[in-house]
Design a binder for these strands. Structure first.
Lengths: 339, 339
DNA sequence: ACCGTCTGAGTAAAGGTTTACCCAACGTGG
DNA sequence: CCACGTTGGGTAAACCTTTACTCAGACGGT
């Protein structure tokens, strides 16, 4: 029978009493430190289990100056990018007993700062910053922070570690795939040129074409908007030209969906006449397109996992060389590029 | 100049020294408790600001037995529903200094339990459970928990508080809107009948038709899948019948998009010949449909906000009557139902 | 038989904050 | 002028865990 009121959680004291040892011995037994007979250790562990004892992380943190908690700040209110990243971070840290506070920040800098303050009061051991756009900074001042910070899908500057997808490699993989399918006139329809990822993906497109001995189809990458509507417009423009492409590599899945729909409406067969590949591998878009879209997956989860582990290293005092780490993308082939 | 090493955070002791008072006085000044001259209070506040003092939430929590932290458990790995809910919860609690741990659980019950354990070790004051499907329970045992739990988009049983969208009211609003537009043959295409929300939305459809003096179009609600493909199939079936509908109310936005696309392919004008309304108001689907979809918004954020506040009340010891709270949905009118 | 060493486990301080309680000084009323 | 209430602020315990230090006893070597 428990020694305290039923609703109260057992403390290390209760375990000590139950096992007939001192609280120091309990602590040591539970943490695998110190020396004692196997019998004593067993007895303590048994008592702890019997009382359903869970150490109070607050008290532990007070002493060890580690809260086993990190904050994840993101401006991706929508969660499209942030959630896989967060799952990755969690996955990388849960084994180390670390939990994640998620803060979805809006544009409001005051509110954002108060979120950051709350995190610091909670004594987070570190912070992950996850952007939805690489070349855009969160409305928060990370200067003067006493804890390490790593960035994912956003850049932290020269003295920080940043994890980014290898956009160019992803684009190259997509285009190489199309070229390998025998496509020769591969167009590229993408988002606004002011987005760095758009420029990087276009660069990958160009590089892969060169490697395959092909020339860019048309005047160059077609920069526009990240929307289905732009996909439609781009098809209209392309098919108004002298020679239609036999493949379109798109800067994201929404554009790719617009392109695919527009082609079907024109009676152009996908992938028979034209193969289409998207970017992001956003299941809800790629999977519902007719036919389902081949797409480049940025492996956001793995990105998050590695960011979490890198943060943990810094928390543990390891010196981590700052800079940008690029993780490879993976091409997910579906029907739109004919398997 | 700060009294301690630069990287160390100031403690209440430092503030006390700076202000020339005892730590007890600092604590009271900062928390607005106790009695002291206005001058003293000012001086303490000034010192705290000068040292950029933030109380250590761990230490405070140790004493007050409140961590000012809640856990949000969800099985919505995708984030479609969980993220707005989480934002609402955060919004409702941030003013009270409460932060949110987000845990996205997968099917793995062992991992899920370890997440819950981690939360309890971190001494969360309460837990919000956010489902992605009402009639589906998370692979976690909430029994024997010493903290209050509220449910959002999921039901917690008889002794818990649950916040759900008023699906039926949302459906009624959509159908009343269509009827108000003069539509008379209003069909309903929705997801699998085994989903409770599908049955509730269908019930709303039926009720609103009755109120408007209309009869269900066709044999009844058309249950199928939550996909665009089902929208296409449903249109094929409907237009094979004796009389085509002049409006389609869909169980979610993906179905509505499928329906709209299928209609356009048949040369049926939307909203000219047929008006379409969806459910979920998922921007990425509703906004990109041609024409943009009218849709029922479940106000997930408000749902989360209220859940957060209800949880806070329980944490503060208020008795909250258990049961289901239904919050109204809002119809967002776009072009597909002709403004 | 004695000294030194190792083993197993306990003692107590520390970590930052809150709060119940205490106390000196001051003011007020009779 | 004294008793008493009030005011302003300090003292110290408590919250729960970790860990440096202590210490008694056992054991082995000479």
């Amino acid at each position: 029978m428990p020694r305290r009121a039923d609703r109260e959680r057992a403390t290390i004291r209760d375990v000590a009493a139950e096992a007939g040892v001192s609280i120091a011995t309990v602590s040591k037994a539970l943490n695998g430190r110190g020396r004692m007979t196997a019998e004593t250790r067993e007895r303590v562990l048994g008592a702890a289990k019997a009382l359903n004892f869970r150490p109070n992380a607050l008290a532990r943190g007070l002493h060890t100056k580690r809260s086993f908690t990190v904050g994840l700040l993101t401006d991706d209110v929508y969660g499209r990018f942030a959630l896989p990243v967060m799952q990755g971070v969690t996955e990388g840290l849960i084994d180390h007993g670390v939990s994640v506070f998620l803060c979805a920040l809006e544009e409001n800098p005051v509110l954002a700062q108060s979120h950051l303050d709350a995190l610091m009061e909670k004594q987070v051991d570190g912070i992950v910053v996850a952007g939805r756009r690489v070349d855009r900074i969160l409305p928060v001042d990370f200067g003067g922070l006493t804890v390490p910070v790593v960035h994912v899908m956003s850049e932290g500057g020269a003295d920080r570690v940043s994890f980014l997808p290898d956009e160019e490699q992803g684009a190259r993989a997509a285009v190489a795939h199309l070229a390998g399918l025998g496509r020769r006139r591969i167009a590229h329809v993408t988002g606004p040129e002011r987005f760095r990822v758009a420029r990087e993906r276009a660069e990958g497109w160009r590089a892969a074409l060169a490697e395959a001995g092909l020339r860019p189809h048309g005047p160059g990458a077609m920069y526009g908007r990240w929307s289905e509507a732009w996909g439609h417009e781009a098809v209209a423009a392309l098919w108004a030209g002298p020679e239609a492409p036999d493949a379109v590599f798109c800067g994201n899945d929404q554009i790719a969906r617009g392109v695919t729909d527009a082609l079907r409406e024109r009676g152009v067969r996908v992938p028979g006449d034209v193969a289409v590949v998207g970017f992001d591998n956003w299941e809800i878009v790629a999977g519902e397109t007719r036919p389902p879209l081949s797409s480049v997956d940025m492996n956001l989860r793995e990105l998050g996992r590695q960011a979490g582990l890198a943060l943990l290293q810094q928390i543990n005092g390891a010196e981590v060389v700052p800079g940008v780490r690029r993780l490879p993308c993976t091409l997910k082939v579906r029907a739109s590029s004919g398997a």
